[in-house]
Design a protein around this nucleic acid. Sequence first.
DNA 1: CTGCTCCACTTAACCGGTCAAATACGAGGG
DNA 2: CCCTCGTATTTGACCGGTTAAGTGGAGCAG
Lengths: 332, 332
Amino acid sequence: MVTMQDVAERAGVTKQTVSNVITGRVAVRPTTAARVRAAIDELGYTPNLVARSLATGSTRTVGFFVPTVAGAFYGEMVEEVEDVLEEAGHHLLLCTTRLDGERARRHLAGLTSRSVDALLIAGDQDLLGHLPLLSDARFPVVLCAWETEAPDRFPVVTIDYERAGYLAGRHLRELGHRRVAVLASPAHTARVAGFRRAFAADGLTVPDDAVRYAAAPTPAGGFAAAEALLATDPGVTALFTTHDVLALGALEAARAAGRSVPHDLSLIGQDISEVLLTHPALTTVSIPKREMARQATELLLRALTKTGTPANSVQLMRPELIVRGSTAPPAG
Amino acid sequence: MVTMQDVAERAGVTKQTVSNVITGRVAVRPTTAARVRAAIDELGYTPNLVARSLATGSTRTVGFFVPTVAGAFYGEMVEEVEDVLEEAGHHLLLCTTRLDGERARRHLAGLTSRSVDALLIAGDQDLLGHLPLLSDARFPVVLCAWETEAPDRFPVVTIDYERAGYLAGRHLRELGHRRVAVLASPAHTARVAGFRRAFAADGLTVPDDAVRYAAAPTPAGGFAAAEALLATDPGVTALFTTHDVLALGALEAARAAGRSVPHDLSLIGQDISEVLLTHPALTTVSIPKREMARQATELLLRALTKTGTPANSVQLMRPELIVRGSTAPPAG
DNA sequence: CTGCTCCACTTAACCGGTCAAATACGAGGG
DNA sequence: CCCTCGTATTTGACCGGTTAAGTGGAGCAG
């Protein structure tokens, strides 16, 4: 390992001068700087980032907690976060919590000791119970993709999930649907509430037994729940699913029940990935996840440079309705 | 920030004794240890990992380069890698290269300075040209999911991609297909070669113009290429796609051309994610990506503890044929 | 009582940088 | 010619741990 001291001796200066050349914080005479740079090249010196981190107190690394990266949603967020971090010269330490609170806690505890400069947490399912661990965190923490109530302590950049549900409901209302049902993940309460609001605005209610929760966020889970729903309540003319893979299962179930989409049953989902192309293409409420990730990361970095606590605010990104082929006015 | 020194003073010992209690490397009298532990709890002390890294020379962090995490393939690999690392008490530093060689090079250069203990590189598309940068790496490097020729310097854990193609070809041959075509990503040469070998074994050739390369690894790219293929060469009875999203596009194109799958056209893909459920379900050659990721990571960790260079070997994981509904004997 | 070993702990140096204060040097003004 | 001033470089302490060598006292044999 070639150190700064080695470079210094070779260039006939002290290591402090070498440091000055590298960081550029203090002026160095051009001829000296050239000599130092030559020595750096000849020896193939690269600064030891760990030593630098110890001295400066900054690792230039940001931790990012996500529930999973096996799907497109958080995967894309990770890429966006990484892009922003890279522009700022930071590295990305990734932790996937995998619906496992204990695992999340372990990871969290492992990071609390100066190995990251800041922490971004997406998806509230697993970490929620362990956030108090962070109450004495000395680094900025930002939450994003947060659907449930967030602790006051931390700034949040998330989606207006209630509005996402509302947009779906309003679309179905505008098409004339009255009897509808919802296929949801248990955590998606805000979307369900928004969906209901759209109907309530017209004096209609979405009864509790028209809201079904899938056992698992998989196509199979969506299929089972949708199948049960269509069997017990065949009168519904439209179905709202809060998760893209649930929509896939629902589409299957509709087909299996002999109902053509959209004529016999309208289907509207949330943030259907473009990879999931189906027949017909699914109408969806798009979640601006990349923009959200970018905003959250930039907020985090701003807090890092301003060395103050970040503005304790809640920033809501607006979802957007994308009408494709799976919704139509009800038959008859 | 409470340091080891603070704990030491509180417990009435020196910081070395505190260190001994924490690491357990040197015996400490039980009564003293208890006092130290009490002080740790009272002060809420957590060791500074950066300082420890500087002293020990180990960051307990492993870098992982992948082309992308927006799709399921590498996303699942990331999770598997993380699992193995976590068991060993290591962190994961993630870099996605995003088909951008220059970006990959920058990231690589940023890590060469003691910030990671080891490096795992998956997917050969972007990094290939920059591997010489690693020639003087002081830490273990392992390559995985490597389809092209790998540099001799590094151990490789990858898939027998040639065999993956062969299995697809053999399946079609066993069904009786003679005139077939391939829809490939440009980098998937090994799979195409294996596919050809299966036909060559029966004295048949897959002509060059039956192998089409998609402009982009997207459903749209697959659709365009498959559409062109079916238009110019309507006599093919089966189609092999080397990428899951290409298969989706191909399925669309077959439908658009009025050919029912599998009766008018058999379709076989590679590693179709279970999320991509289609009608009919796609026959596929499954790529054991999680096992591959696990093996590669364990190899890396072994190299880390044995403090020697890892055995410079090539380990090939066997793909597996999964017959579903998209393949059948040719019509007539 | 002396000398030896062993245990438990302390002391001092080190990892490789950064930071702030001190110093050497040359130019300009009186 | 001396003093001042500004710039370029050096000095020494420091970040918070780990490693290796050193020290003091207890226990035991001779």
